[in-house]
Design a protein around this nucleic acid. Sequence first.
DNA 1: GTCTATAAAGTGATAGAC
DNA 2: GTCTATCACTTTATAGAC
Lengths: 234, 234
Amino acid sequence: MSAVAGNSKAGTKQKLVEAAEALFADEGFDRVSVRDITTRAGANVAAVNYHFGSREGLLALVMARQINPVNEERLARLDALERKIGGKALPVEEVLDAFVRPFATQVRRSELSEKLFFKLMGRMFGQQGGELPPVVEALFVTVMGRFQRAFAKSLPGLAVEEIWWRMHLMAGAMIHTMAQADTLQRVSGGDSGTPGIEQTLSRFIRFAAAGMRQGADEPREESRSQGPQVEFSF
Amino acid sequence: MSAVAGNSKAGTKQKLVEAAEALFADEGFDRVSVRDITTRAGANVAAVNYHFGSREGLLALVMARQINPVNEERLARLDALERKIGGKALPVEEVLDAFVRPFATQVRRSELSEKLFFKLMGRMFGQQGGELPPVVEALFVTVMGRFQRAFAKSLPGLAVEEIWWRMHLMAGAMIHTMAQADTLQRVSGGDSGTPGIEQTLSRFIRFAAAGMRQGADEPREESRSQGPQVEFSF
DNA sequence: GTCTATAAAGTGATAGAC
DNA sequence: GTCTATCACTTTATAGAC
């Protein structure tokens, strides 16, 4: 088990990508130098600039390579669900499943360990200031728009603004849960257990579905009138 | 409106702290140099090391100064609620309110703008790898333990492990919502509106309360038997 | 495609004058 | 308490040999 590079048969370029992914995930985008990467990959210091133009070029590639397949799969799953059900509204749980299950799919295709994969995802979504590469940002915006429409259909009692905020809360719960699993271990003193990925997905979906649905009319149910939502009475 | 330092009557030490807070919040802990801070504070490059021993010393002070009052107020609010209600269980909403309202209190006492305060909070909670100063980490662990017990009392149907995971999901939703409010603005194309802080707290509490309660027996209600929670059926 | 050598700038920290 | 000057190092990037 080589602690240094990934597949030792891989070319330098791929070894650099794999080293960069592991290091960025583990230590953060700002704390990893070109030298750290080339050393780990067993390559020359100049290799990053030769193969990727710059440190920034490699960083953008790493980000796109890991997150874009997740977002593509999200769209594919949502498309499939909507095709299957026709024009009707989907249960919130199905939409949430289409949103989170791609993490489980893609972590298996990744050369990264489960822990590092989720740390990397957390670092990308936690990026403040919109420093994501344009190609990543664009697909991300597309995904959020598509899911917003799906949730709006599933939760017809809610205003557009309310849907956006609940998606935001939902996404935060997801990201934090995945990226900070060891924090939970530490803080709980081990009382949080060590659930598998399916159980974590299931926990997330049940939690988020209840939050998304809160106070909303489910489609096809009898419409219950709701008073205007006043500020601060919970 | 001075874009450089805070109160120009403040001493150098305080100006350094205020400059550091604003810069760390806006750009991230790793991207701000000692020179950035001293320049913004209108102080000499050597001032940080004179007053705080090192860059790290200043960083630890900034973190503790901003997050510890939030955590102290959380404990005080929970204590007050529990004293008021005696030995009985609190409604989940009350516990959640004690958890998030201190952000609203402390942002007003802070010299930071609302936006920067929440960005800073997000950066601290988003820290991966447990790099928080010990005094901050210790209080944080205390707070989570106290709230875990409060939630366990409010949600007697749930296993300890389940409580921890729901708290984790809840905390993620909170952090993300606060720290990434402008991401939501950008992604929604403005459709998320510009709610005040009270409305955001209210939205969060309603979302999180539904998630925390999901499938649980409320205290004092008739006990509904629940089958074992199987993996993956949402 | 890989290497060495080096440029040019930035980093945190400190000795010592004032 | 503040300043200048400087140390010792690290950073990204590149020119040019192989």
